[in-house]
Amino acid sequence: MNVFRLAGDMSHLLAIIILLLKIWKTRSCAGISGRSQLLFALTYTARYLDLVTNWVSLYNTVMKVFFIATSYATIYLMYLKFKATYDSNHDTFRVEFLLLPVTILALVLNHEFSFMEILWTFSIYLEAVAILPQLFMVSKTGEAESITSHYLFALGSYRLLYIFNWIWRYYTEEYYDLIAIIAGVVQTVLYCDFFYLYFTKVLKGKKLQLPA
């Protein structure tokens, strides 16, 4: 554990808390992509099945349980409790275009051809692109509420901080995991456009609005 990873994890935690609070306080999930949230739930389920096979630390276990539980809580809020506020007309990204390539890639490019390892690899590749339905939704409606922007910023920062963590680990532990690194870089790059808008608009008090 180093400061970059801890900051990354905290950023991830913050993103989820922001999202849940937004939905809970406003009693609405408008502007949030249910498809991205389904992909995140699938990501954490596939990756954290090792909860029962691989003990790392109490911190690790608590965080994994939190990520799995909150991803399903989000889905419950979106698809059941506040279903009437879910903006499904704008949430139309075809997730099979992500799931199919990610599954094939996980079967071909992995560290070891075993069930748990392929699930882990699948989750790493899927997480890298899971935000695309959300970004697609923002581009389709041309805007995002400030609170949604803060959520996206915290979520994007998390993998960026992990990249610093991987650089740190490479120099201090000689540890590196190419699959995680490449997928993490792809994941972060997908947020670049959004980061630019966040700094130039949202932080100056303006709403995130895309040029028509």
Binding site: V56, K64, H111, E112, N165, Y175, L178
Partner: peptide, 10 residues
């Protein structure tokens, strides 16, 4: 060197 399939990160 790479630690094989030791996923200690989240």
């Amino acid at each position: 060197s790479e630690v094989e399939t030791n996923h200690d990160e989240l």
